[in-house]
């Protein structure tokens, strides 16, 4: 019989990994739901962000959090540029899947060329810090991931809900011609949203670098579960991926604690099938 500490620590681990799923899913969900782009390159951008964080921390001695000052604006421009290209060549949603897959392969090769295929592990002062809550341990890198995921998800939600810009984005996503008739500049807003989503990928990259081993091929390890998180959380919903991510994270962790860890990958897809069946009429 597993101990209470084991179960509680597993739930905590699940919350932390789930927060990262949610953070990775946030930008993907927004571009998919509001721009009708299935952006597989989001994962490649997250890893590019992770490698840049690694480089700035190891090579230039920056504090990992300070790397966001460079990564976020750069990725914003990168995301906006990508969207400009997609719009320029009128990429359809289905074709966006193929094009962004191609971009992912290119970014993977670029990462491999610069940092080689060897696995990299970022040592930072944060890595060694952990807090104790009774018998439970709370590592700082994972805590930072949770804080960033919650803060960005709430900020995105509030921005879309309560600001004129956010309302305009939602209106453009709902019906672009009608929104344009009311003076909404859909093109500019799309660029802005793409930029923000890419910046979210950069932040997720920081969290990946803080807690995980980096290898170019790891880009693909996250796609399945994060896609499930986005589908379960609802497309274009900024809070949904976080909630779905935490649910999947806890489920996976408890599966690992109570049965065999080898069963954990089945959890996200089993949940996805259940949710898709339950929502069958809405699809």
């Amino acid at each position: 019989m597993p101990s209470f500490t084991l179960l509680a620590q597993s739930v905590l681990s699940g919350i932390f990994i789930g927060a990262l799923y949610g953070l990775l899913g946030l930008g993907l969900s927004l571009t998919w739901g509001m721009l009708r782009q299935i952006n597989l390159a989001h994962f490649a951008l997250a890893f590019l962000g992770a490698y840049l964080t690694f480089q700035l921390t190891h090579g230039a001695g920056w504090d990992p959090l300070a790397t966001l000052l460079v990564v976020v604006p750069c990725f914003f421009l990168l995301g906006a540029s990508m969207h400009w290209l997609f719009a320029r060549f009128a990429i359809t949603p289905f074709n966006s899947l193929l094009v962004t897959f191609g971009l992912t392969v290119i970014v993977e090769s670029l990462i491999q060329w610069i940092w080689t295929a060897d696995q990299r592990l970022m040592d930072s002062a944060y890595g060694a810090v952990r807090f104790k809550l009774g018998a439970l341990y709370v590592p700082l890198p994972e805590l930072l991931t949770l804080v960033l995921a919650v803060a960005l998800s709430l900020a995105a939600w509030a921005g879309l809900r309560y600001t004129d810009l956010g309302r305009a984005m939602r209106a453009a996503a709902e019906d672009a011609p009608i929104a344009a008739a009311f003076g909404v500049n859909e093109r500019s807003l799309s660029l802005l949203l793409s930029g923000i989503s890419a910046a979210f990928a950069g932040v997720a990259g920081l969290c990946i670098a803080l807690s995980f081993t980096l290898a170019p091929s790891q880009i693909y390890a996250w796609i399945g579960v994060v896609f499930a998180v986005v589908m379960i959380g609802g497309l274009g919903n900024p809070i949904g991926p976080l909630v779905a991510g935490i649910v999947i994270g806890i489920s996976e962790s408890l599966t690992m604690a109570l049965t065999s860890p080898a069963w954990a990958p089945l959890v996200s897809f089993s949940l996805l099938i259940v949710v898709l069946l339950a929502r069958a009429k809405k699809i």
Partner: peptide, 18 residues
């Protein structure tokens, strides 16, 4: 046992400790 490519080793560490 875990699948090759497993990302989260926290629960496995917990079980070993337990």
């Amino acid at each position: 046992e875990w699948e090759f490519g497993n990302k989260d080793f926290g629960p496995i560490a917990n079980r070993v400790k337990d």
